[in-house]
Amino acid sequence: MLFLLNYSDFLINGFITTVQVTLIGVGLGMILGILAALGDIYGGKIIKIIVNIYVEFFRGSPLIAQLFLIYFTLPALTGIRLDVITAGYLTLALNSGAYQKGYLKGAMEAVFKDQFLAALSLGLPLRKILMYVVVPQALRIVIPAWSNELASMAKSTTALIVIGVREFLNTGVSIVAQTFKPLETYLFITIVYFIWIYSMLKILDIVYDRVKIPGLEPVI
């Protein structure tokens, strides 16, 4: 595997892209997920229907199909052209938001019905209830589900290969094209993915142990 040292810059760049896409995808997805969950719980009928169509579509179709839709179909319909990496961010965010809505809604709904009523009876306005009572606790409860989401998003970034993003696996493809050593290259790449994702899961486990709310273990 020593020949891979010649390509270390290339590999590091690819790995950084993968990490970046994962974190931005999950981060933007969290904002979308929170908005969608709030819309589904407290919103009107039309908002609920829109949220549910969005969630079912993005949970029900493969990421590759969604990437094609955002990268090819969206510009064909609206004329907005996105470059590959932006299309990647946007697709992963939309995809992740649909999944995170489910976790967040579960956490917000099941656990906070009483607290919501209590806060309401104390005279807090809705915005403040959400900001100071519901969301901060929901975020802490949802960490285990959320770490699964982070891991699955990290694995899903490999799909970006279909629109040509230079992420980690794609750098492997280029290296194989030059060196004709697929076994070593892909073995190395798979091992790096394993170390990265596994350690991410472990770290979030430790974080969860620190910040978990006693008596409110996850419902998921």
Binding site: A151, A154, K155, S156, T157, T158, A159, I161, L169, G172, V173, P182, L183, Y186, L187, I189, T190, Y193, F194, I197, Y198, L201
Partner: peptide, 11 residues
Amino acid sequence: RSVPVLAVMFL
């Protein structure tokens, strides 16, 4: 559980 399925396919 920690490796992408596409990487396994390529491997």
